[in-house]
Amino acid sequence: MKGDALIDPKGLIHEAYRIDGITASECRSIFLDWALSLPEGQETGKALRVLLERYGEPKPDHPMTTVMRDGLASVATPQRRGGWRARPRN
């Protein structure tokens, strides 16, 4: 299933799983490109869950599976905002 228009518009994740000997570093680079290419309004967490089910479950030891799991964990964990947004207002 190359390039589902909503969750993998450029087919990057699909192709990453087809590359023999791909490294974790290369997977992180591909993942960043994938995240930046998602259509506006597409929920990243939802897309990652679908991709992990489609590609990660059959290949749990693939470096892209690890990268996507890490990405899903960071999407699910809210980050503290720093700077002036974090300061209480009087």
Rank of each mutant, 00 (worst) to 15 (best):
W34G: 01
P60C: 10
D20R: 07
T65H: 08
L48P: 00
L6N: 10
L32M: 12
L36W: 06
L6V: 10
E40K: 09
Q42N: 04
T77H: 07
P88Y: 11
R81L: 15
D33W: 07
R89D: 11
R89V: 13
D8K: 05
V50M: 09
C27W: 01
R81W: 10
N90L: 13
E43S: 13
L72A: 02
C27T: 06
K10T: 05
P39V: 03
L48T: 03
G3L: 07
Y17E: 01
E53Y: 11
E43K: 14
H14Q: 11
R28G: 01
A76M: 09
L36T: 09
L51C: 03
G56D: 06
D4F: 04
S74R: 15
A16K: 09
G83F: 06
G71V: 08
P9A: 03
I13H: 04
P78W: 00
L51R: 00
H62T: 05
V50T: 14
W34N: 02
T77E: 12
P9S: 07
S29F: 10
R87C: 08
M68Q: 07
G41E: 03
T44P: 02
E43Q: 14
G41C: 01
R54V: 11
T23N: 04
D4S: 03
D8L: 05
D8Q: 06
C27E: 00
P88A: 15
T44F: 09
N90K: 11
G83V: 06
A47R: 00
I19E: 12
F31V: 02
P63C: 09
T44D: 04
A35R: 15
P9D: 03
A76D: 14
D4T: 05
Y55S: 05
K2Q: 09
P58D: 07
I22L: 08
G11H: 02
W84D: 14
R28F: 09
H62E: 10
W84C: 08
E26K: 09
M1G: 15
S74Y: 05
E15S: 13
L52M: 05
A86N: 15
P78H: 03
E15G: 05
L6F: 06
A76G: 06
S74W: 09
T44I: 11
N90D: 14
K2V: 11
D4C: 05
L72T: 08
G41A: 04
H14N: 14
L48N: 01
P78D: 00
E15C: 01
Y17W: 08
R80P: 10
Q42R: 12
P39I: 03
R28V: 06
D61N: 11
R69L: 13
